[in-house]
């Protein structure tokens, strides 16, 4: 991610240093700010998938909150039935669904709340929370077996 000159004081990771911007007097402060979400024409955004859009650096899509996570959801394609429960209830737009299929998790925007795991209806669940430090392959290898329903 790269920042344009309009956002001052960013390092090469694109993270802005607080207080690095030039100070101005009270009478020079701009009243109100307009942040464009996209580069160029954005008239048909509702019909464009995320990968087809031209996000501006101001769009929070270009930022990450991955550092908020302690636990991360891991997705198991083999069990998933594409019900899209996780998609509709994800508060962070982090479930990537295309053409009625669940593709995976957007780890840049996921905060690890665990809602997707709770609403997953399969048995065993096709999404489970694992330690952030654990590799996904390792997590998939220790996936639990089908639980018998207590009658």
């Amino acid at each position: 991610m790269s920042m344009t000159g309009s956002v001052p004081g960013t390092d090469n990771r694109g993270i802005r240093e607080l207080g690095a911007e030039e100070k101005v007097g009270w009478d020079q402060v701009q009243q109100g700010v307009v942040l464009p979400s996209f580069e160029g024409d954005a008239a048909d955004i509702a019909h464009q998938k995320a990968e087809e859009r031209h996000y501006a650096d101001f769009n929070s899509y270009t930022a990450t909150v991955a550092s908020w996570r302690v636990l991360k959801p891991v997705y198991n394609r083999d069990i998933c039935i594409d019900c899209q429960n996780c998609w509709v209830w994800c508060p962070d737009t982090s479930i990537i669904s295309r053409d009625k299929q669940m593709l995976g998790i957007d780890y840049d925007h996921c905060k690890g709340c665990g809602v997707c795991v709770e609403v997953c209806p399969t048995n065993p669940k096709s999404l489970l929370m694992f330690n952030e430090a654990e590799e996904n392959e390792e997590a998939l290898s220790e996936w639990p077996q089908k639980e018998k329903k207590a009658k």
Binding site: H47, A50, A63, C83, S94, H109
Partner: peptide, 15 residues
């Protein structure tokens, strides 16, 4: 839900 999920999100993450 499957049909609903083809809608393109216009509210971005990292809020």
């Amino acid at each position: 839900l499957k049909e609903f999920s083809t809608s393109n999100d216009r509210f971005e993450g990292a809020h």
